[in-house]
């Protein structure tokens, strides 16, 4: 059964297909209003989430389908010690497709291995969050009209930020892109991402701690939050959490058509004043996430139907 656990699970052709479907959904929402009539999405969220769960649920409702859900490990059989494998087999009896979020890395893979219906990874700890990357890609496409020849700045927590690793992986598959990695020393992109993705594919990149210095060359600035839940040590979190705060002053040398993205939630790393700047795209990104989840649900349900 086809599932999507990580961005490389989707080929470039499939990404294009998802973008095309999402664009068609935006243009003709009525055409899709009953596309998933009679189908059920199970949202299994074992970790706090607002936008990802709501986005999946809104996506399914807008496709004319229904949603059944579990939120929080404490309210599910996981609290009684049920394994991921058993949960996957059980939920497969109730629903047609699963969206899962779980704090443990690799959890979505285990669920996909045991489910008899498609599984979409809605975030497995610090490992992967492919539908956020789909939201990022549609935003880049709608703002820039292309995926090639862009200088992409990634700023903040580049070590634990799973969306950062996925976006690097996704955008390095297109020609002519360059990355500027902006972070404190302690939160630099892990060496395996640089080695296995950037260096292996010969993608140009630079590392810096200076956001303002990097600003003039950027076409896209992807801001991230320093995530408390990824630290074992509270002291380290407090020391690093305010490393980069984007405000209007820091944007003064930015390109007029810069696109500022952020996977949200924001704490204080983007000043509220920036929200009114036309270059701020992070709330458009939220909406784009819903469209891409709609496109992905449609694709996986169609493929599952063809398998039967």
């Amino acid at each position: 059964m086809r599932s999507v656990i990580d961005i490389p699970d989707l080929s470039l052709d499939e990404l294009k297909e998802l973008i095309d479907v999402a664009m068609d959904i935006i243009a003709n929402p009525q055409k899709y209003a009953e596309a998933c009539h009679g189908k059920k999405l199970a949202t299994l969220f074992f970790e706090p989430s607002t936008r990802t769960r709501m986005s999946f649920e809104a996506a399914m409702y807008e496709l004319g389908g229904n949603v059944i859900s579990v939120t929080g490990a404490g309210t599910s059989s996981a609290a009684k010690g049920e394994s991921m494998a058993d949960t996957a087999k059980t939920v497969s009896c109730y629903a047609d497709i699963i969206a899962v979020r779980h704090p443990k890395e690799g959890s979505a893979y285990v669920m996909a291995q045991n489910a008899t219906i498609p599984v979409i990874n809605g975030g497995d700890g610090g490992h992967s969050h492919p539908t956020q990357t789909l939201a990022d890609l549609l935003t880049i496409y709608r703002e820039k009209g292309r995926f090639e020849g862009l200088t992409i700045g990634l700023c903040g927590d580049l070590k634990f930020g799973r969306t950062v690793h996925s976006l690097i992986q996704a955008m390095s598959r297109y020609n002519g892109n360059k990355f500027v990695l902006i972070s404190p020393e302690e939160l630099k992109v892990p060496s395996y991402v640089k080695k296995d993705v950037l260096q292996q594919r010969g993608i140009p990149y630079e590392q810096t701690t200076d956001l303002e210095g990097a600003m003039p060359q950027l076409d896209i600035l992807y801001m991230t939050r320093v995530q408390r839940e990824r630290f074992f040590n509270e002291e380290d979190y407090l020391r690093l959490k305010d490393s980069y705060i984007l405000n209007m002053e820091k944007l003064k040398n930015a390109k007029p058509d810069l696109a500022i993205l952020h996977p949200l939630p924001r704490v204080n790393e983007i000043s509220v004043a920036v929200d009114n700047d036309p270059r701020a795209c992070y709330f458009k990104q939220v909406l784009n996430g819903k469209y891409m989840r709609m496109a992905l649900i449609l694709k996986l349900l169609k493929e599952a139907q063809n398998e039967h």
């Binding site: 394994s83 991921m84 443990k104 890395e105 690799g106 959890s107 893979y109 285990v110 700890g125 490992h127």
Partner: peptide
């Protein structure tokens, strides 16, 4: 050895 890995809690894996 990753304490965040699913194998750290799902004993049968």
């Amino acid at each position: 050895k990753n304490p965040r890995c699913i194998t750290s809690t799902e004993q049968e894996l």
